[in-house]
Amino acid sequence: MTQRKLEAAIGLFLALLSAAFYWLVIPVYAPGSMFAETPPDLLPKACTVLIGALGGLMFLHRAFFEAEDGAAPAISLLDLRQMAVIVACFAAAILAMRLAGYIAGGAMLVAALMVYMRTRSLLRIAVTAGLTPLLLYGLFELLLGVPLP
């Protein structure tokens, strides 16, 4: 896999996705309307066609007209896997805020991310994870009277 091939694949993917979106999603989720002078689905359709056409061009260009320079792809499966872990931390924190309140959820998020970044000092983790949500809670909930989750 090289960057050129990856981009060709992305182009093809975007072209196919746009086609599916145009024919399958837009008619159901953004139907036209008789009550409008300009159809509501005009702009979504125009954007989709544009993305599809540009994606197609990108595929053709990358696949057939661009010389292979052997560059490694800019994003790898490993990148995506790591990103999934980070995003999962955020998602878990949002859930935790709902269940256990803002401070607990916030502390969990900060601590998890710091652990993920391999912070060695436990004290540092404890202080940062404890203080950040407390400070924010103090500022908004107590000082300004704005409810947090």
Partner: peptide, 13 residues
């Protein structure tokens, strides 16, 4: 490793 986790929480907030 302090600033970005804290910023992440700020963004959510």
């Amino acid at each position: 490793n302090i600033i970005f986790p804290a910023t992440g929480l700020l963004c959510l907030t």
